[in-house]
Design a protein around this nucleic acid. Structure first.
Lengths: 120, 120
DNA sequence: CTGATATGTTACTGGCAAGTAACACAAATA
DNA sequence: TATTTGTGTTACTTGCCAGTAACATATCAG
């Protein structure tokens, strides 16, 4: 599966199974917090796992395009790809939106505050 | 977020693993569409699976409280519990909200339209 | 009561996925 | 050049889970 293939469509099953793993969800959290990290830097946060295992998790996240990855020298830098995460989550959420109007109103307020804080 | 903090990942893991299964996600879709269904009615939508397997899936959804269940006579009726679904999803989403302000703005609009259509 | 229907439970099996170890290879460094 | 460092790959093992079959229990119909 080519991560640069534009026609590649991420399915819900693969997505939810992927983030159903504690280690991969923790990796996404680390990337959300630190922005850009190498494999070694990520591995240092998991002293109970070997580095090659972390590398395998990162390859899965890459395949699903949940993370960006670019190589500089011999180091591979990973960072979050929130658009893809949202592109899978949003359609699934919207199927239930008729039950969730009140909750979405609350989320809307959070979004507006965020927009004020981040005028990017 | 500390990936070694055990308290934060328990519910999320079970939740994402649960909806990572195609059959269980399809069951939730059925309940979202039809409102309230018995085990037999749900099973009829899965001709390739035996009924006891569907019952096991429903028990998992019950255990996580993703569905309501009430017994009438010898029939067990299941329906969606969207509040619990959202209660797990929202905190996870919010960790990335600084990346998602634009997306949340769009979702807010959907929420407001929904509120107008369902004035409940 | 007798039998049929609706649901849940348990033991079992096959397949998949996480983790590891050992290796391969490229890039930096001495 | 030789060596170390950073990353990815492969074979292997282990544990878990979806699905099934057989059974248990409760409720309804005749």
């Amino acid at each position: 599966m080519d991560p640069h293939d534009k026609s590649y469509k991420l399915d819900e099953k693969a997505f939810f199974q992927t983030i159903g793993d504690n280690t991969r969800r923790a990796i996404l959290d680390l990337l959300a917090e630190h922005g850009e990290l190498t494999v070694t830097q990520i591995s240092e946060h998991f002293p109970n796992l070997v580095r090659s295992g972390i590398s395998k998790h990162l390859m899965q996240l890459r395949k699903l395009k949940l993370v960006y990855s670019k190589k500089r020298g011999r180091e591979q830098f990973y960072s979050l790809n929130p658009e893809v995460i949202w592109s899978v989550l949003e359609p699934w959420i919207k199927k239930y939106e008729k039950y969730w109007s009140k909750n979405l109103i609350r989320l809307k307020q959070a979004a507006e505050q965020t927009k004020q804080n981040h005028t990017e």
